[in-house]
């Protein structure tokens, strides 16, 4: 089955053609990061207008890169939520219109489910259930247990800042450029050790995370001026990675998960990958970076199993904006 997928929930306008939910024939991403750098961040109305400008060309490019026409597409999928309403509407309505025009089935996909299904784009055998998923990005930090396709039990998540956001804010405190994640990782590599530790919020008795205390502790450490940027970056990264890898590995053991699936942009952090692989009792699967950040290939991968079960979305169905694992 060939699925044409569209994603426009936040910064990127993306389209992809995915075969049988596993093989990307194409994946095109038009990023607004440059545009938003001028505004210093995502701006809803600006983002919406830009998505509108990008969505047509991006879809055409995805079909061209895949070497196919709409005639060879079996279904169309688009991100339904969560995200910014103005942004979501552009991709979702483009998908509906194409499906209606071509007489094809249409399916709305949960963006977070899409992130998890980036793991199905990794070559080799498919992921094995039950699996524990760690979704770590700028906007989300969730631990989700998956017994089968489409079955999600959210067992923990952040109570304040997302992990990627914590990296960015720490980067800002340290005077590093946006986005903070890669810059902190680079600084930390230079230090290779630190003569102090920053606090971990273990949130005992839960599988929740909290990174706001670490943010404040980082601020105080910067203000005291006793340590250099690289040392603080190292201590910060170790604190985040320790909690993420510690909780994920413990939960994987308790639940008897057969595999750990990682998703979201923070999965690009080398220390996180190392520690997850070192501590988890089962194989840890991490998609390549281009499928960890927002893309449409992951939406096509998630759509495939829904469509295979005969599920479709009515064309009068609306987008949704809030983080909700029940809406998949």
């Amino acid at each position: 089955m060939n699925v044409l997928a569209i994603e426009s929930s936040c910064d990127e306008t993306a389209a992809a053609v995915i075969v049988d939910g596993r093989v990307p024939r194409s994946s095109v991403v038009a990023s607004q990061v440059d545009l938003h750098a001028r505004y210093g961040g995502v701006v809803p109305e600006v983002a919406s207008r830009q998505h509108l400008r990008n969505v047509g060309p991006v879809i055409e490019q995805a079909l061209a890169d895949a070497g196919c026409t709409l005639a060879e597409i079996d279904a169309i999928a688009a991100t339904r939520g969560p995200g910014l309403a103005g942004s979501l509407l552009v991709g979702y309505n483009a998908g509906k219109a194409l499906a209606y025009g071509a007489g094809l089935p249409f399916l709305g996909v949960n963006h977070l489910e899409g992130h998890i299904y980036a793991n199905w784009l990794v070559e080799g055998p498919e992921p094995v259930f039950p699996a524990l998923c760690l979704v770590v990005s700028g906007g989300h930090t969730d631990l989700v247990f998956m017994r089968a396709h489409g079955q999600y039990e959210r067992l923990g998540g952040t109570r304040d800042d997302a992990a990627g956001e914590a990296f960015d804010k720490a980067g800002r405190l340290l005077g590093l450029p946006f986005p903070g994640g890669p810059h902190i990782a680079r600084e930390a590599d230079q230090a290779a050790s630190a003569p102090f530790e920053l606090p971990r919020a273990w949130m005992h008795g839960t599988y929740d995370f909290s990174f706001s205390g670490l943010k404040t502790a980082t601020l105080h450490t910067v203000e005291r001026g006793q340590y250099g940027v690289s040392e603080i970056a190292f201590a910060f990264q170790e604190a985040v990675v320790d909690v993420l890898a510690g909780k994920t590995s413990r939960l994987a053991r308790e639940l008897g998960a057969k595999e750990v699936l990682v998703a979201g942009g923070v999965a690009a952090n080398r220390r996180l990958r190392e520690e997850l692989r070192r501590r988890c009792p089962v194989p840890v699967r991490i998609p390549p970076p281009k499928f960890c950040t927002d893309n449409a290939a992951m939406i096509g991968a998630a759509a495939n199993y829904h469509l295979a079960l005969g599920e479709t979305s009515p064309l009068d169905e609306d987008i949704f904006t809030t983080n909700n694992w029940a809406r998949v």
Binding site: D160, A162, E165
Partner: peptide, 28 residues
Amino acid sequence: GNVNSPSFVLMNEYDGRETLFHVDLYRI
């Protein structure tokens, strides 16, 4: 649901007695 930081997603929306729109312009 738990209200968490919207720094990256720019805006979170929560259903309640009134809908809460929680916006963060931290990079603007």
